[in-house]
Each structure stands twice: as structure tokens, then as C-alpha cells.
Design a protein around this nucleic acid. Structure first.
Lengths: 301, 301
DNA sequence: TCAAATGTTTGTCCTAGACAAATAGGACAT
DNA sequence: ATGTCCTATTTGTCTAGGACAAACATTTGA
């Protein structure tokens, strides 16, 4: 047979579970139980790696590892979407056209998806496209991900193609910039960029001068960048997947690094359940970004 | 005093040196010697972290840790850019226009950089733009990074804006795809996407159907994606920063996961010093990607 | 019904030993 | 002088189990 086998470092890479955790689970729960190679080192069969990936995904949804590992294989039932509001027609389940877009991704039809999205963009205009198509579609993909009925590579394809569409649309905008200079980025350990692009599109549309720095900037660097670019506002994005309890500390720390006259905005799914922070403006929706921009302008006038 | 202190996990994040390595160095070389907090856990003063960062950078340039740690503080001299060919006029030092582009980044003039690059793209055409502007410019930025004379956020700005330019150019290409279906991605722990975009631009220009999946795909997922998209070729990119010794193992493992009829290509700065691998085509330059595509086509005819 | 106290679960850190992969240095042959 | 092989050193990663604190769940008390 000689199925493909993985050493512990490879499993760490592929699952996101640290070596310490892998060894600890083996000690405590008796799973995974890897084979040993000629040097006595762990060698995980692909099957166990697969199971670990599934467990990790369910953990990210809020399940506890102890329970998951005990469950034999009908944990497929545990896929039960632990969503607070189970998809009323109002929040995200109603729009059939979103389902069509999602179906294109599921059929791995990249060109078809691009074309359909281009049409929507042309029809709706950028603002409505972002708010009424990209945002809900992203949420739908996130839900599918939690429910386990989308493949990792399908999600990657969606993200990659959507990023391209947004960047293209942003690049096509006219170049006059009356508004504030807004530096857009995310903190280390936050690699998601789609939310940042959505808000960039909306802000650029309103005439703000956006400085996109990509993701994962060390805090001290964000401070330096704000100085160097003479930014008026620093806008950060936190995805729902980002560990919520770290956010207040990060924001406070960054607030200390930034000059007082630079505004600090934080948005994205990760901040929606957060209590207000001194010196930080929390944006709970895309609309709010537009409002905040208008308010900033009046406050400067 | 209470200078800012870092626990071992923070040092790992900030330096890229694994916890194991940090503890081992302490045991073997007597550096770093962190303080201990009330729980007996390592607490690294900022000064030592700074030194570690410097050491890591020099290591990435080819120096050995043993020597570096022994060197007191005049290792600043060791900054001597150990570049193999110290910038002859031929390899990368001659083109003044590249320096102008780099200067725009250093002045944090994003719009100016974008405009200058757009002009070059229009003048040279996509192929020459990629090969003669983007590639050497990327290398130049990498050198500046090694020499420590570029800021992190400057590098981020460069990367972000250049990504946009390339994606825009790719999107503008006509849509007929006679060629093979090529799946483009990178392995986990390899977040760099610029190289992937460069090769995508060249391959798409030659009529290949490129399926961009972004970066950091788990190996098993790459296999599934190749099946789902009926890919003819899987192309991976490894940056110079990627730990070279991990690459052969990764490629072999991926080779086992992929169907035999799917070709596996690996390119980027990380593979340039690699010995040939069975079942894997190593691309040492962008030109080689074009050649490889032509060869694949004749072999299929 | 909410808040505080208690108990469980879980991840990360610790020490210290072993070994193999990578690299450098030296001997030898071409 | 140059290239190849062999040996010695350097260096990173793995292993084992123990300890503990932070996160979470549950029960108690108001």
C-alpha cells in the first residue's frame, strides 16, 4: 500500500494543530495514533490527517476537542450548523441569484463566475455590488464553510477571483482624492483581505485616498507607515475567525503607537460583538464605513 | 524600567525562529538568555529580540548561527552583503529606471508608482513588463530587504500595488484557452504570491488556462483541486525565503497525492539551488516556464 | 434571573536526551 | 589548480512526560 504518510511537521502545516497539541491529544485522548518510522518518529497516515482537519474545522466553529475526538464517525451529524439565527429569509437565505453564483464556484467554473460577477458589477454599480452581492456572498461562503459543504479549494477559488474583481473595480475608479488619506491593513495573524477590499472600494468611491498595505502588518510598522504616509485614518479589518479576546488589547496597543490626531477604525465580522473602545471607532457594517467617512469630513470642516 | 518583554511565542512570531531553536541556542551557545517571569517562563527583553532578528536576517543570507552568536556587536560589519555576484552591471545593478521605481516606493508615492508602472506596461507589453521590470524590481526589493534598507511597510506597499497591476493585466487578456489547464498555488507556510502572478501572466499570455487558487493550500487539498478542475499541470511557487530543505519532501509528498498524468511544476527563487526531483519539473526562471509550456504541448500532440 | 464560586478541560511551556541532515574541512586523485 | 570523496562538526528537529494557568462549563447563592 504505502499510502502517503506525513511527519509531525507536515501535519502541523496541513491542519494548523501545533506539534505540542498533536502529541498531547495522543497522550490524553488516544487519537491520533500515528505509526512510527524507522527512527521512532511519528508518521501519520493520510486518513488520520483528514480526520484531524475535520476536527479542527469543527473546533473553529466552537466545538470542544474532547467531545469531537470521542465521537466515532457519525460526527457528520455534529456538522449541525451551530448558527445563532438559522437563516431566516431576511438575513441571508432568500436571494436565489446568490445561490447561482455559489453554484458556479461549486462547479469549479471560474470563468463563468467571473463573467457573472462582472455582469452584476456593471448592472448594479460598485457600491451596490459590494454591499448587495459581494458581502452577502462572502457570508454565504463562510456559512457553507462552517457547515462543511464547501471544499477548501473552492473557498480559495472564490476568494481569489473575488479579490481580482474588486481590485479591478477599484483601479478603474477616477483619480481625484479630496478626502482623507486612509491606510488599510490588518494585524499579524489576520490574513483575510476580502473585507479590507470591500471597504476600500466603498471608501475610494467616496473619494477617499486609500493606501492599501496588504495584510499582517506588525503594530510598530503600522505606526511608522501612518507617519510616512501622513495618514488621517488607519483602518483595520478583523475577520470572524480572528480570536475576539485579543482584539481589545491589540487596538489599545496600536492606539498608543499612533499619533493622537490619526483616527483608528476597526471593522469586519470580528468586531461586531465588541464593546466600544476608547479612541477607536468600531464599524459594524459596511454602511457605517461610509457614514464614518462623512462624519470625519464634517468634523474637519 | 519594565521594558517591553516578549514570551517565547511572541519571539517566535517576531523572529521566525522556532521555540525549539530558541531553547536549543540558549542551551548550546548561551544566547539568548531570557529572564524568567513569575511562572518560570522565558521572558525576552526587547534588546535580545532585536539581536535575534538581526541574526536571523544574516542567517537567511547564508551565515551560520554559531559564528554570528559568537560575534559581539560589530557584526554590523558582517552586513557585508554576501551576495554571490556582487551586482555587476549585467545582473541587476545597471538599470537606472528600476531605481526610479524603487525611489517612488521609498517616497511612499503609491499613485506615482502605479502610474509609472502602467506606463511601462503599456510601452513594453505584458511579457517584457513581467520579465524585465517586475521580476528584477522584485529582486531589487528583496536585496534591499536583506540589506535592511527598506521598511516593512514599504515592502508591503510595493507588493500590494504590484499585485494589483499584474492581476489587472491578467484580467485584460483575451479569453481563448487552447492550452493546458494549469492550477497555480503554493503550499502552507508560503504566503508569497507575486511569483505566482508573474508566471500566471506569462502562461496566460501563451494561451494556457490558469486556475489561480491563491496561496497556502494544504497538500491533500491541492490533490483534490487538481481532480476537480481536471488540471493538466499543478504549478507551485517557492520564494527565496522558504526553508529550502523542506521543499524536496513537500514535492515528493505532493507527487504521491497527485494522479500520475498530472504534471507537477515548481518554480520561484526557492528552487533555484535544488537538485532535480523525480516526477517534478523545476523551473529556474520565468523563461523556463514558457519553454516548459511549449514542451508540454508538443509532448501531448 | 443573574452573578459569583467551583470544577474540568485544554493548550502551552518546561527540561533534557538523542539523532540525522546539513555543512565545513581535509585528503587524495585528476 | 581543480574536483571528489570522506570525516568531523554544526545545527535543527524530534521524543518523553511533567506542570500549570487560562478558558470553559457547571453549580451555588442572591
Amino acid at each position: 500500500m504505502s499510502n502517503p504518510c506525513f511527519n509531525i511537521a507536515a501535519v502541523e502545516r496541513d491542519t494548523g494543530l501545533s506539534k505540542d497539541v498533536l502529541r498531547m491529544w495522543e497522550r490524553r485522548y488516544g487519537f491520533p495514533v500515528p505509526d512510527r518510522d524507522s527512527n521512532g518518529e511519528r508518521s501519520y497516515p493520510a486518513e488520520q490527517v483528514e480526520r484531524l482537519r475535520l476536527i479542527k474545522r469543527l473546533m473553529d466553529m466552537g466545538h470542544r476537542p474532547g467531545k469531537l475526538i470521542a465521537t466515532p464517525a457519525d460526527e457528520l451529524a455534529a456538522l449541525a450548523p451551530r448558527r445563532s439565527a438559522p437563516r431566516t429569509a431576511r438575513n441571508s437565505g432568500s436571494d436565489d441569484s446568490l445561490d447561482e453564483l455559489l453554484a458556479l464556484i461549486r462547479q469549479h467554473d471560474g470563468p463563468g463566475y467571473q463573467q457573472a460577477m462582472q455582469q452584476r458589477l456593471a448592472r448594479l454599480g460598485l457600491q451596490s455590488f459590494v454591499q448587495d452581492t459581494v458581502a452577502p456572498l462572502t457570508q454565504r461562503v463562510g456559512e457553507a464553510w462552517e457547515d462543511g459543504n464547501i471544499e477548501v479549494f473552492e473557498e480559495h477559488l472564490f476568494t481569489e477571483l473575488t479579490k481580482r474583481l474588486l481590485r479591478q473595480a477599484i483601479a478603474a475608479l477616477p483619480g481625484s482624492h479630496p478626502g482623507p488619506r486612509i491606510l488599510l491593513t490588518s494585524v499579524p495573524d489576520e490574513p483575510h483581505v476580502l473585507g479590507l477590499l470591500m471597504v476600500e472600494a466603498l471608501l475610494a468611491l467616496e473619494g477617499a485616498e486609500c493606501i492599501p498595505l496588504g495584510t499582517q502588518m506588525p503594530l510598530l510598522e503600522i505606526g511608522r507607515a501612518a507617519m510616512a504616509h501622513r495618514a488621517d485614518i488607519v483602518a483595520l479589518s478583523f475577520s470572524v475567525a480572528f480570536p475576539q479576546r485579543q482584539i481589545p488589547g491589540l487596538l489599545q496597543q496600536l492606539r498608543l503607537v499612533l499619533p493622537a490626531e490619526v483616527a483608528l477604525w476597526a471593522g469586519g465580522g470580528g468586531v461586531s460583538r465588541l464593546t466600544p473602545q476608547a479612541g477607536v471607532l468600531l464599524l459594524n457594517s459596511l454602511e457605517q464605513a461610509i457614514t464614518a467617512l462623512a462624519e470625519w469630513r464634517t468634523s474637519q470642516a
